[in-house]
Amino acid sequence: MLLPVQEIYPAVFKGEIYVAGGLSSELPKQQGQMTALVQIYNPKTNTWRYGPALPEGRHHGQLVAVLDQLFLFGGFIQANGGHWSASADVLQLNLKQQRWLKVATLPAPLSETVSFVLSDKVHLVSGRSPATEANAQWHDQTDVAIHWIFDPKSLKTEMGPVLPEAKNSAAAVVWNDMAYLMGGRQVKAGNKAGVHRFNPKNQQWALEKAMPEAQGGLAAAVLHQQLWVFGGEFFEQGGGVFSKVWAYSAAENNWQQHGEMPLPRHGLGAVVLDEAIYVIGGATAVGLKQTSAVLEKVSVK
């Protein structure tokens, strides 16, 4: 990437990969080490370029492409005297004006959430929201089990069936018309290995086979009927970053290791484009340290 960033949730839009905002250990602390820059990768030319910047620096913002539109939900901004003020903004990229516009407001500020698209609607599940009116620092937030459903046509949000447990920093994918939410962490209990499946037909959550390791700050993608999981961080015994690559097969109902990441990271993103998984950015050390600009292409036979 042109700028190393972590705590990102990239999206594929019009055949390119978009990364909006993020944190970087290379940016000044006085600006909260966050950026408003939007980076776009073109797989045909194998090059990055800058796109229309966000209205302000923002990290942990959820970028989602749906119905040929690109939205960004929530995340943290600099406000209320701090750099970790959770936002309720819904931004949309206006291609004609080449700028981001605020088009809606979520029911409450939300960050460190996950998203997936079912039936052309955006689902936002889990994450952190303000526990107090302060809403300025990370510790002002608390884990939530929310499930919101955003309609890109009406720009309105309705409530969905809540997740069975509150947590943040998980990963989510859609597979066989159902959504899978994997891992994450609870601030007081640490990383989680659980996998929750959401069935839109009966509107219910159910537990699937847990991941082999409890991982938070991870990324996930689906390719060739397998669910792939990359990275994450842990804080026990001095902390570290997960290196093993795991894949889940529904046919075998089993997780298997498929090697290790060349550069283990957390706070990274993963998307599928042109029959390959692209693993993007993140940090090679726990927390806001050693932010990486690496882009890896994972081909699966």
Rank of each mutant, 00 (worst) to 15 (best):
P4M: 11
Q6P: 11
Y9F: 12
Y9P: 00
G21R: 03
S24K: 06
S24N: 09
E26A: 13
L27P: 13
P28T: 07
M34E: 13
T35D: 06
Y41Q: 00
P43C: 09
T45G: 03
Y50W: 03
H59M: 02
G61F: 03
L63W: 01
A65I: 05
D68K: 14
F71M: 05
A79N: 12
N80E: 09
N80T: 03
S87N: 05
A88V: 00
L95Y: 01
K102I: 08
A108L: 14
L110A: 08
V114D: 04
F116M: 10
S119G: 02
V122L: 10
S126N: 14
Q137F: 15
D140N: 14
Q141E: 14
D143F: 00
I146Y: 12
P152E: 02
S154C: 04
K156H: 13
M159N: 11
S169N: 15
A171Y: 10
A172D: 09
V173K: 12
V174G: 06
V174H: 08
V174E: 10
R185I: 04
Q186H: 11
H196L: 14
P200Y: 09
Q203N: 14
W205R: 07
K209H: 03
E213G: 05
A214Y: 04
Q215H: 04
L218D: 03
V222Q: 04
E233H: 04
F234P: 09
F234N: 05
V241Y: 00
K244P: 00
K244E: 14
W246Q: 12
A247W: 08
N254V: 09
L273R: 03
E275P: 10
G282V: 04
G287V: 09
K289R: 13
E296M: 15
